[in-house]
Write a protein that binds this DNA or RNA. Structure first.
Length: 271
DNA sequence: ATCGCCTCCTGCGCGC
DNA sequence: TGCGCGCAGGAGGCGA
């Protein structure tokens, strides 16, 4: 479920409860996530959390310069701050008990997420080192975007969803950014004009920033760490709107499959 | 190097 | 009401 705005929203939600707090204990109720939950995280008794940051869709819980827990929410993961009295839900796999008396619970029905202990430079960890620039950061320039695209034969939608191009652009926002830029999702990345790529670059940034401002997109079950939904769904122009009229031209929104993922677009607005 | 396909897993909504 | 099917916000890993 979580795309970058949802992960960012999650970070902002848990940060005030975790930073400068001690993790008293971690209970692993189910260790079989995408990779087995690192045994080392169980030993994090009475360790102080220095910071909560995000890189791509990874959440980094920092204990020291060389000690982090790296979490990913996969398709269906969420982190929730709970009172210890609240009953556990099915699929609450990890329970972090905090020094302030609260708990942070990692919930993930499909178990595509992970919780890994990283001892060493976290940014050079295997899963991190090949990541492209942050879409909202200064390194993601329109020049970089243009240069990377040249010679690419892949559909532009799959290309912007590839982590080495730019991180954090998932299925919803890829569809939305392409709609905003008026580009057909199947067009070869290397054949989109410089001007249209500049537009796409800008739209990727604006759609992600706007969604973060609205607290992310709640499709069916994404909730903030405090249990509130995100409000960006109302603003989706094409995603999950097959057969509905385009707000700009009245044509029917189409659905195709690209790289095994549902892809929504307006056949008239997007060329 | 690049690309496309497969996979992990549970839950939900649909049509019969 | 029940069953089987297809589909779901990710992304690493594989073979071609």
């Amino acid at each position: 479920m979580p795309e970058l705005p949802e992960v960012e929203t999650t970070c902002r939600g848990i940060r005030p409860h975790l930073e400068a707090q001690t993790i008293l204990s971690i209970e692993v109720r189910n260790e079989s996530l995408r990779w087995p939950v690192s045994e080392e995280i169980i030993q994090l008794m009475n360790r102080l959390v220095i910071s909560i940051t995000r890189r791509a869709k990874y959440i980094l819980i920092k204990f020291s310069d060389h000690e982090h827990i790296l979490m990913h929410l996969g398709m269906s993961g969420s982190l929730r701050i709970s009172d210890p009295d609240e009953p556990l839900r099915k699929h609450d796999h990890l329970i972090f008990s905090l020094g302030n008396g609260l708990q942070m619970r990692y919930h993930d029905p499909r178990r595509f997420g992970c919780a890994l202990w990283v001892d060493g430079d976290v940014h050079h960890y295997k899963l991190m080192e090949k990541l492209g620039p942050e879409p909202l950061g200064d390194d993601f320039t329109r020049d970089y975007f243009y240069q990377q695209s040249r010679g690419r034969d892949t559909a532009v939608k799959q290309w912007i969803m590839t982590n080495s191009t730019v991180v954090g652009v998932g299925n919803i926002y890829a569809c939305e950014a392409l709609k905003m830029a008026g580009i057909h999702p199947k067009r070869a990345a290397g054949k989109v004009s410089k001007a249209r790529l500049a537009s796409l670059h800008e739209k990727i940034r604006t759609v992600l920033q706007r969604s973060i401002d609205q607290g992310g997109t709640t499709l069916k079950d994404f909730l903030h760490s405090d249990g509130q939904p995100g409000y960006f769904k109302q603003q989706l122009a094409v995603y999950d709107r097959e057969g509905q009229p385009c707000a700009d031209c009245d044509s029917m929104i189409k659905r195709i499959v690209l790289g095994q993922r549902s892809t929504f677009y307006c056949p008239k607005c997007q060329k």
